[in-house]
Design a protein around this nucleic acid. Structure first.
Lengths: 206, 206, 206, 206
DNA sequence: TATGAATGAGTATTCATTCAT
DNA sequence: GATGAATGAATACTCATTCAT
C-alpha cells in the first residue's frame, strides 16, 4: 500500500534498495557480456554502454573487472549450493530426489550466472578466489554424490561408480550451458526435465 | 640408412621436414599455454620463452595468435573426426562400437589439443572460422549419434533419446578435459575405459 | 559564560566563525596529506577521509584541489612574510636581528604549511599563482638580505656576498623542513636556535 | 681507426653500445621532464614526444615510469657518491678538501639528474627503493661530515657542530638546484666555486 | 550543510604485429 | 631462419569535479 502522502525524497532504506538493484543490474550485464563475448573480449566500456551509463559508474558498483567476474561466479555457485541442498526431502526416494536435483541444477546452471560460470575459464581470477570457488564446486558435487549413494543404498538407483556418475551428470548439464540461450526453443526447466528423465532412466535398476 | 657422404647442408626435403617439426612444436607450446593460462592471459612472448626463441620466430611458424589458436582447434577436431570415424567395424555390435568410440574420443579430447579445444572458448576466433569448426563438431556428434541409433536398431543399446544421450556422453568427456593433467594419476586411456564402462553399462538393455 | 537563554540556532556570526574553523581544518588536513604523501599521490577523497567527511564537503570549503594547495602555500608565505618583517627592532644590532629572524623563519618553515611549501613543488599550480607566490618569496628573501646588509654596515656581521649568504641560510632552513616531523625529538624552535647559533657564529667578524 | 672495410651490419658490440646510448637518452629526457614539469605532470607520452619516438619505445628502455624515476635518482646519487669520495687526497688540508668537495657536489647536484633528485619528492617511488636511496644519501652526508671533522682536528676549519654544518652546506647546495638552469648566466662550476668560497671563508678559524 | 551518485578526461601499461638486418 | 627494435591500438583504472537531493 502506498503512503497517502509520498515524499519525493528517498528514504535511506529506499536508497539502499535502489543501490542493490543497480548493483545487480551491473552484475547481470557483466555476466551476459562475459559469457557471450568472453571475459577478455569484453571491455568494461561495453558493459557500461549496455547499461547506458559511463565506465566510472560501473566501477562505482563493482570494484574491478576481476571482482565483477568473481561476483558472477559466486552468484552462480551460491545458487547451485542452495538448490542442491534443498533437493527434495530426505525422506523421499533417491530416485525422486535425483530427479528434483537435476532439474534444479539445470535451472541454476542455465541461468545467466551459471552460463558465465561454465563459459568463462577461471584463469582470470586470482588463485585465492579460485580456491574459494573450487571449494563450493566441491560441495555441490558432494551433494550429487550423496543422492547417488543414497540411491545405491535404498535400491532406487544403480550407481556402481558414484564419483564418475556424478561427474557425468554434472558434465552433461554444464555442457548444456555452453549452447543454451534464453530465447531458445526450450526453457531451462524443460531441458532439466529432459536430462532428469534421461539419467534417472539410465540409472534405473533392472 | 644414412648416405655414405653426409653434406653439412640440408636437402630441401630435410628442410621441409624440420620446418614441420618446428611448427608442431610451436603449436604444442601454444596449445599448452592457452589451455593452462588461458588465451588472453598468454602473450606470444610467453610461448616464445617456453620454446627458448623470440617472438618473431613464433610468427615465422604461426601466422598470428588467432591463427595459432585456430590451428590448435583444428588439430583437436581433426583427430576427433578421424577417431570417431574409425570406431570399430560397422559389422561389430553397436555396444562394442560405442565402447571403442568412447575410449578413442577420450584419448583425443584429453590430448593437449583436445584440452585447448574444451578449455579455450571460441570467442576469440573470427566467425568464419568458428563456423568451420562447428561443422566438424557437428560431424563428430553425428558419429556418436549414429552408433547410438545403430544400437537402438540392433538392440544392443537402449537409447530412447539419441540426441540427448549423445550430448550427455560428449559433455561428460569434455568435462573431464577440464581437469585432466598429463602427469595425473590416470592415463587418458584409463579414463576413457572408465567412462566407456559407465555409459555402456547404463545403456545396456535389460 | 553562556547566555541565560541559548537558542539552538546559531547566529550568523557563529556560523561564520564555525565556517572559518572548518575551512582551516580542511586546509591543515590537505597540507598534512600533501606534504606527507605528495600532491598527486593524495586524492581529495583521502583528505576527506582524514576529516571523516565526504569529498563534496571538502569542495564546500575549498574551491578545487589546486586552490587548496595554493591556499596552503599562501598560509606559509604570509607567515614567513609576517615574521621576517617583525624580526627585531631596527634599532637592534644586525647580529641580534639575524638571530631572531632565523628562529622565526625556522618556526614558520617547519610548520605544517611551511613543510607543504618546501616539499610540494609548485609545478601543480597555475603560472599566475606561481608568479604571485614567487613575489612573496622574493620579499622574504629581501628581508634576510636587508639584515645582512645592515650587519655589513654596522660591523656586527661579515657578509661579503649578501645574496649568496641569504640563499645559503634559507636553503639550509628549507632543507630542514624536508625531514622535520612534529613529533620528532626536537621542536621547531630548538632547531631554529641551533641554526641561529651556527650562522651567527659563522658570520661573526673576527 | 676505422676498419678499411666497414660492414653495414652492426656488430653485437655496436648494438649493445647503441642500446646503452639510447637508454641514456631516455633517462635524460625523463629526468629533464620530471624536474621541469614534475613527475605526475609528466606523461610518458611527453617524454616519448621529446625523443620523437612512441610510448612503447620508452617502455622498451625503461621498465616503468617509477623505474625511470628511480634510475634518475640513482644516477644522481651514484655520481654524488663518487665525487664526494674522491674529494682531494687525504693528505691535503681539510680546508682544501672541503673546497674541492663543495665544487664537485655542486656540479653533481646541478646536473640534470641532480636537479631531478632535488626537485622531485621521493613519494612516488616504492618504500624499498626509497630506503635504498636514503642509504646512499647518508653515505654522501657522511663524507661531508668526515671532511669537517678532519678540519676540526687539523685546525684548518672551525666546526663546532659537524652534523648541522654538513646539513647547512648540503641544504644550501640542494636549494641551488631548485632554480639552476643549464642555460643560465653561470655554470655549475662557477656556482660551486662561489659556494666553496662562502663556506670555506665562514668556517675559517680566526 | 552534507552526501550519494555520476561523469569527463587522462594515463600507465600491455601486446600483437611488423620490419630491417 | 632468427632477432632487436619499434609501433598502433586497446583497455583497466583513477580522480577531480558536479549536481540533485
Amino acid at each position: 500500500m502506498a503512503p497517502t502522502q509520498t515524499s519525493p525524497w528517498k528514504s535511506a532504506d529506499d536508497r539502499l534498495r535502489e543501490r542493490e538493484i543497480k548493483r545487480e543490474a551491473v552484475l547481470r550485464a557483466a555476466a551476459r557480456a562475459f559469457s557471450e563475448r568472453g571475459f577478455h573480449n569484453t571491455a568494461l566500456e561495453d558493459v557500461a554502454r549496455d547499461l547506458k551509463v559511463t565506465k566510472p559508474t560501473v566501477y562505482y558498483y563493482g570494484e574491478s573487472k576481476e571482482a565483477l567476474l568473481a561476483a558472477c561466479y559466486r552468484r552462480a555457485l551460491d545458487t547451485l549450493d542452495d538448490v542442491t541442498l534443498a533437493a527434495g526431502p530426505e525422506s523421499a526416494s533417491a530416485r525422486d530426489r535425483l530427479r528434483v536435483l537435476i532439474i534444479a541444477y539445470a535451472e541454476a546452471i542455465l541461468s545467466i550466472y551459471g552460463r558465465c560460470l561454465t563459459r568463462v575459464p577461471d584463469n582470470s581470477v586470482s588463485p585465492p578466489i579460485r580456491t574459494e570457488l573450487r571449494a563450493i564446486k566441491r560441495t555441490v558435487d558432494d551433494r550429487i554424490r550423496a543422492v547417488l549413494t543414497q540411491g545405491a543404498e535404498d535400491g532406487s538407483l544403480i550407481a556402481t561408480d558414484v564419483k564418475m556418475t556424478a561427474f557425468a551428470i554434472a558434465g552433461a548439464l554444464n555442457a548444456a550451458a555452453l549452447w543454451f540461450e534464453d530465447d531458445g526453443p526450450r526453457t531451462a526447466r524443460q531441458i532439466g526435465e529432459h536430462y532428469a528423465e534421461l539419467f534417472v532412466g539410465a540409472l534405473q535398476p533392472r
